[in-house]
Computed example of a mutant assay.
Amino acid sequence: MDIKQYLNQRRQEVEQTLDRLLPPTTGALAGHVEAMRYSLLAGGKRIRPILCLAAAEALPADSKPLLPVATALECIHTYSLIHDDLPAMDDDDLRRGMPTCHKKFGEAAAILAGDSLLSFAFELLARPLDRGRISAEEQLQLLGNIAKAVGPGGMVGGQVLDIEAEGQPQVDLAQLQRIHRCKTGALITAAVQSGAIGGGANRRQYEALTTYGEQIGLAFQIVDDLLNVTGDTATLGKAAGSDAARGKATYPALLGLEATRRKADEAVAGAIAALATFDGHADPLRELARYISARKN
């Protein structure tokens, strides 16, 4: 299959849904909504929403009813980027080749834009989904998975651990894996699980797709660590070399470049192996795993 064509088609669907569901830039909150839209619609790979849609298609099931869920996942991801870029966090000036939200609108406006995106995501997730496909109990499971992936056991907790590990010389592999599993892997896994639930997965399928999500989340962060060392700012759309400058705990810093690349390849192989019982409808997930490993930004 042509993974680039697939990604472009799904990305367009996600971005059209984002534009349609977001509040308009009119009225008293026009400036606030503009800040939300600025970061949310500034491009990006839309990997998390696409993983959600592709997981449903692997079962196979129609993914279109899950577009609001996919949209919510991207809102959550963008909230995390806005807050990660803040001076109190990673203090980054560039995101996706553009000034970060706090550079464009100011720090207070950026914090509030991130807050609104997170809150709006759960508003979307609480709206009734296609009742012919998903029960209220299943929707609660989906919502609970995502909430857990965002909070202290997921993204926020991972960011705390990441900050605490900066400049620490004794971070071992187990600590590093915990940071990455929470900060990056949790939401990616929840995205795949959301597609599984929305697509009507049975228990065996759900467990297999969860394993895929865990492995692909690991691969994604390992490659991110590699690109921060080997990439350039123009290609990445954000500052290259920033991890080393801040003394962050990363795979290359701990293992070196060659061993890090092997770790990424092992995670991709594990993700693909988890799909062994799925037929050709899961090919987008297989190709997404390879794409994540080979990406340049």
Results as ranks from 00 to 15, higher is better:
Ile3Tyr: 00
Lys4Glu: 07
Gln5Glu: 05
Arg10Cys: 01
Glu15Asp: 13
Thr17Glu: 07
Arg20Ala: 15
Arg20His: 15
Pro23His: 04
Thr26Leu: 14
Glu34Ser: 12
Met36Ile: 06
Ala42Trp: 00
Arg46Asp: 01
Arg46Cys: 03
Arg48Asp: 12
Leu51Glu: 10
Ala56Pro: 07
Glu57Arg: 02
Leu67Gly: 01
Thr71Met: 12
Glu74Asn: 07
Ser80Phe: 12
His83Ile: 06
Asp84Thr: 04
Leu86Arg: 14
Pro87Lys: 15
Pro87Ala: 14
Asp93His: 10
Asp93Thr: 04
Asp93Pro: 01
Arg96Met: 14
Met98Cys: 06
Cys101Met: 11
Cys101Tyr: 05
His102Leu: 04
Phe105Cys: 04
Ala109His: 05
Ile111Val: 15
Asp115Ile: 11
Asp115Gly: 07
Asp115Val: 10
Leu117Gly: 08
Leu118Lys: 14
Ala121Asn: 13
Ala121Lys: 08
Glu123Leu: 09
Glu123Phe: 08
Leu124Thr: 12
Leu125His: 06
Leu125Gln: 01
Ala126Thr: 09
Arg127Asp: 01
Ile134Met: 05
Leu142Val: 15
Leu143Ser: 03
Lys148Gly: 07
Gly151Ser: 05
Pro152Arg: 15
Gly154Cys: 06
Met155Asp: 04
Gly158Glu: 02
Leu161Phe: 06
Asp162Cys: 07
Asp162Asn: 14
Glu164Tyr: 05
Pro169Ile: 09
Ala174Val: 07
Ala174Pro: 03
Gln175Leu: 09
Leu176Arg: 08
Arg178Tyr: 00
Arg181His: 08
Cys182Phe: 14
Lys183Gly: 10
Lys183Tyr: 10
Lys183Glu: 10
Ala190Leu: 03
Val192Pro: 01
Gln193Gly: 06
Ser194Gln: 05
Gly199Trp: 03
Gly200Arg: 02
Arg204Gln: 11
Arg204Phe: 04
Gln205Lys: 01
Tyr206His: 02
Ala208His: 11
Thr211Lys: 13
Glu214Phe: 02
Glu214Pro: 04
Glu214Leu: 14
Ile216Asn: 05
Ile216Gly: 05
Leu218Ser: 09
Gln221Ile: 01
Ile222Val: 13
Asp224Thr: 14
Asp224Cys: 15
Asp225Trp: 03
Asp225Val: 05
Leu227His: 12
Thr230Cys: 10
Thr230Val: 12
Asp232Val: 15
Leu236Gln: 12
Gly237Gln: 09
Ala239His: 02
Ala240Cys: 03
Ser242Gly: 10
Arg246Cys: 00
Gly247Ser: 13
Ala249Lys: 04
Ala249Trp: 03
Pro252Ser: 13
Pro252Met: 12
Leu254Asn: 08
Gly256Tyr: 09
Leu257Asp: 05
Leu257Thr: 15
Ala267Arg: 14
Ala267Asp: 04
Ala269Pro: 09
Ile272Leu: 07
Ile272Gly: 01
Ile272Lys: 11
Ala274Ser: 13
Leu275His: 08
Phe278Asn: 00
Ala282Asn: 07
Asp283Ser: 09
Leu285Phe: 06
Leu285Tyr: 03
Leu285Val: 02
Glu287Asn: 09
Leu288Pro: 05
Tyr291Asn: 02
Tyr291Cys: 06
Ala294Phe: 10
Ala294Trp: 13
Arg295Val: 13
Arg295Thr: 15
Lys296Asp: 04
Lys296Ile: 03
